[in-house]
Write a protein that binds this DNA or RNA. Structure first.
Lengths: 193, 193
DNA sequence: ATTTAAGTCGAACGAACGACCGAATTGTGA
DNA sequence: TCACAATTCGGTCGTTCGTTCGACTTAAAT
């Protein structure tokens, strides 16, 4: 018998199955039984490793948030000038939406749950804050840029930029066949003129 | 006995009750029984007037979309220059989010359902298109403005603007206590400099 | 006054859900 | 080897859900 030491734990299998289900059907259409089936695991295992459904979903959110922030942070290191950094961030974001929107879709799906669940709401509020922070610290802290946009604080602008990215991304998810739509992301660069 | 001829129909009572429930608890937490209770009506009436749950929810969406578009269209008539029009639109939008976000919350709540329901997805896709159209036709068709933003089409820019409004609004809903957040909406005007 | 259709209601159905339990299995340290 | 804890499993419980049904009431038309 071959022993694969990298074989995922039972609890990891469950977590990844939950992630898969939610990204492909939405949290509202995902039952514990669905997840157990995809994970190839007995239903009761879900309650054993994660206390209840909310506990499991929270771990899924934590996983998605971690992956999302890591990728954004990574792509903010490319490019020298603020314009360049913004360009590369938008370029990555656009590619992510077209090729692998699973993580973003999970996060987006949960934002509507966030309005009604204290815990999840707090997590997604912090995510928006963190993304805005990353943009502010990595892109907007440029002296020449600061002069041009002095009418507004860099905090306001970073929130506007992260909001624009999110809002356009939602439109893309809603209409993935409209190939011209993602180019609206590029128009964000207008702010830096 | 006083007869009020403006007494809402049974089906109207149901529709408004559904709207209320969804805007205050979210569609995923709203059952047919909840709606029947709020409407003061027998449960079976919901299936009599609207075929099933999806049919009722679709009417709620139609109602919300109608109200939303009408208000935006109305506030786009104020102001002369593009900058002024955008200012008044953002001013209205900000006030709406702070004072009466019920309609917007319903629409936002349904956007996550839209990813998994063909019919609802189509409706919200069209809503985004319509809002972008309104911005494009009422604000971006200005010759002087067109020169300044010639690098991008007015279509791209209108989609970016509507996306930014939506994205910032979501952040506001997620963190209603952060009073500085809505001012990020004002930063949208940067595009018009 | 009689008939017919529309509206309204309470009760019930089957299905699906999350959670829980006891037994069986596996892994671990003495 | 033995005992004990951790893990895994199938089965089931009570609840909630959307939907349906038949009976009753109201309103309109003949």
């Amino acid at each position: 018998m071959i022993i694969d030491t990298n074989e995922p734990t039972q609890s990891e299998k469950i977590l990844l199955a939950a992630f898969d289900c939610i990204s492909s059907r939405g949290y509202a259409n995902t039952s514990m039984r669905d997840i157990a089936d995809v994970a190839g695991v007995a239903l009761s295992q879900l309650n054993y490793h994660y206390k209840n459904k909310e506990g499991l979903f929270i771990e899924v959110i934590n996983l998605a948030i971690e992956k999302y922030l890591k990728e954004i942070e990574c792509h903010l290191n490319v490019g020298a000038s603020p314009q360049e950094k913004m360009f590369y961030l938008l370029f990555y974001f656009r590619g992510m939406l077209e090729k692998n929107p699973k993580t973003f879709r999970v996060l987006y799906d949960f934002t509507s749950l966030a309005l009604w669940s204290e815990i999840i709401g707090e997590k997604l509020k912090n995510l928006f804050n963190d993304v805005s922070d990353l943009i502010e610290k990595n892109i907007l802290q440029d002296d020449h840029l600061k002069k041009n946009i002095r009418r507004y604080s860099s905090r306001e602008i970073s929130r506007m930029l992260s909001g624009a990215m999110f809002g356009i991304a939602v439109q893309v998810l809603l209409d993935p066949m409209e190939k011209e739509l993602p180019s609206a992301l590029d128009a964000i660069e207008l702010v830096f003129d």
